[in-house]
Computed example of a mutant assay.
Amino acid sequence: MAAVLFLGLLGAAARARPLDAPPAAQDVRIVAPVSGEPVLGLITVRAEVAAALADRVTRVSFRADGEALCARERPPYECEWDAGSGARVHVLRAVAELSDGGRRIATVRTAATMPARGGRGGLTVSADVNVVQVIAIVTDAKGRFVSGLGESGFHVFEDDAPQSVSHLIGEGAPREVVVAVDMSSSMTDAMPQVRKAVRAFLTALRPDDQLTLLAFNDNVFTLARRETDAAARLRAVDRLQPWGGTALYDVLLRAMEMLSHRKGRKVLVVFTDGEDQSSRASLADVERRAETNDAPVYMIGQGRGTTDSRLRDILERLAHMSGGRAFHTDHMSELEPAFAEIVAELDNQYLLGYEPANPARDGTWRRIRLEVDGPGRRVRARQGYRALPAALAEERR
């Protein structure tokens, strides 16, 4: 009887308006990815609803190639989807369900070919796992950032063998930014100051930066996904509420996994006040993953992060091998200056790519060294990478 009633209701709705009828123009549209765009790896599928329809939408659900992805009952209407390692045609659909029983549908078809690798400005970095990506910070003898360098100003060495730079992106390109904030119960008293510092950091990001905000205690929570709207970023910070333990290793793995699917300039910023208590992953898992991570990691330790020598060493080691930095703040008042230093470095990042002269994917560790023209200049970048077999490298991505 329940099934008959359900079909009857659907039939009534269909007589009022065919359920699969094309949507009214611009009622609902998929804004990412766009039709004809090739997609690879983990991406965000995002839909927008016209203002005239917004109050009537009860839910937006997504499907990829006929398979259900997710459903959202309030904006932002988006979800993460792994498009796989090979570019091929996909059909993505967003269905907005209305309070009157009707619905609106938007569909896009992606492309099966990748755009050619380009140069500066508007560059699309190749998805080839053989291309090694290196993000670098260059300073002069007085510690001031050096900007305006071109490809010819950099010299890349792998295991001391010179490499040819295939592309360079300067300081102005948009960035993928993942921020992970400890919200364990030990953060209860400090949380107002933490929120204030994180808000200041997010406000300093550029409008075209894609911001993902993670919170972690016993679990890992995504509070914002690739957000570019300044107000939405700040609203996400308000959801930081302290409770539970500390799953530091889990959030590091989650964040590195997210960034592994992103090309271009990117960074991971992690704030924690204590050692790991709740992770399913181990430190060894994190260190193995870090060997293939190409995003600089900035670790901010507070509380036990400054006094516990083992934890301090972990934060330093993970940051150093990635080309990032570790900060140790004795007082919460030092948190905002630490975030400000990170913003300054993000604004002065260079992104280089090269295809190794040694093509072997034999699982060995490859040392990376960067040099730049000019007296007294220093470069900070990732120390190296693990040359995994191609199939395993794709899985890690």
Results as ranks from 00 to 15, higher is better:
D20Q: 15
R361W: 07
A197R: 01
T203N: 11
D330A: 14
Q210C: 12
G324S: 04
R280A: 15
V138Q: 02
H90S: 01
D330L: 13
S322G: 02
G36E: 01
Q133R: 10
S185T: 13
S278Q: 11
E395M: 11
G374Q: 00
I135C: 05
L53V: 12
A326E: 05
V129S: 09
R59V: 09
W365L: 08
I342L: 03
L149Y: 03
A180G: 00
L40P: 09
A24Q: 15
D160T: 07
A231V: 11
V165R: 00
Q26G: 15
T139A: 06
D160Y: 05
P375D: 11
V198Y: 04
A290Y: 00
A326T: 02
E345G: 08
A204N: 07
V91R: 15
R56Q: 12
M183N: 15
R46F: 00
P174C: 05
A344P: 00
V28N: 07
A161S: 11
T212N: 01
A326R: 02
V237Q: 04
D308P: 04
A106D: 10
D294Q: 06
G301D: 00
E394D: 09
A47W: 03
R88D: 10
T58H: 14
F62V: 01
Y354A: 00
L335T: 04
R386F: 07
G11A: 09
R396L: 12
Y77D: 04
R199E: 12
E395V: 13
S309P: 14
R74N: 13
L346P: 02
A87H: 01
D55V: 10
G36A: 04
T107F: 08
G41L: 03
L392H: 08
R397A: 04
V181E: 04
E395F: 11
N348W: 09
M256K: 04
I43W: 10
T306Y: 07
E291T: 12
G118Y: 09
A13M: 10
H320G: 13
G172Q: 13
S333A: 15
L42D: 11
V220H: 04
F221P: 09
M114A: 15
L315M: 06
M1Q: 14
I300G: 00
A141W: 11
I105A: 08
Y77V: 06
Q210T: 10
R109L: 08
R206G: 08
A68C: 10
S35E: 11
R235V: 10
L202K: 05
R109F: 03
S322P: 00
L346C: 03
G170M: 10
A24W: 14
Y77G: 07
W81F: 15
